[in-house]
Every structure is written in structure tokens, then in C-alpha cells.
């Protein structure tokens, strides 16, 4: 039996589904919050802001890419 998709009825997990799983990990993994805590600068941004804006930008770019590659017609 083929594995079912998280996001549709195709037999594979599509890009948006993978992005959602990656996003949930980045947002909801407490050790990452603890590692990112503090004001030590990374590329001029305090570490906690670098973490927050970094993965937020990644999620946004990933969603835009998923939309551009999406083949939904209707």
C-alpha cells in the first residue's frame, strides 16, 4: 500500500507539507528557543531576533516558492 500524502491524495508529501513540518520544528522545539536566547549579535542582530526573523523569513520564502511551484488549476 502506498503511503498517503499529508496534504493531498497523492502518494507523496508535497513541498508545502514538508515546509509545515520543518516550520513546526523550528517554532516549537524548546531547546532552539534556549539556544537562541540572548543579545549576542549574529550578523549585527541580537541572537534572539536573528532566530525569530531568520525562520520567519524562511517560512515566508518557502510558502512563496510552494505557491509558485503549485500546479493547482481551480
Amino acid at each position: 500500500m502506498k503511503p498517503r500524502s499529508l496534504t493531498g491524495t497523492k502518494s507523496r508529501l508535497d513541498g508545502a507539507g514538508l515546509l509545515l513540518i520543518a516550520g513546526l520544528f523550528l517554532v516549537l522545539f524548546p531547546p532552539l528557543h534556549w539556544l537562541a536566547s540572548g543579545s549576542y549579535p549574529i550578523f549585527g542582530l541580537p541572537r534572539s531576533l536573528f532566530y525569530l526573523f531568520g525562520f520567519s523569513a524562511l517560512l515566508t520564502a518557502g510558502l512563496a516558492l510552494a505557491w509558485l511551484l503549485d500546479g493547482t488549476k481551480a
Binding site: L6, T7, G8, A16, G17, L19, L20, G23, L24, L26, V27, L52, F55, S56, L59, T60, L63, A66, W67, T72
Partner: peptide, 19 residues
Amino acid sequence: FYQLPACLIGQLTMYVMAR
């Protein structure tokens, strides 16, 4: 800042459940 990532994940969830 919790609302920013939650809002983006919310939009991603909407995208994934759209069909």
C-alpha cells in the same frame, strides 16, 4: 514575539489544508 511565527504557521496550515 510569539504572534509572528504563529501567524506564518497559521497561513502555512491554511495552504496545506486548502484542498
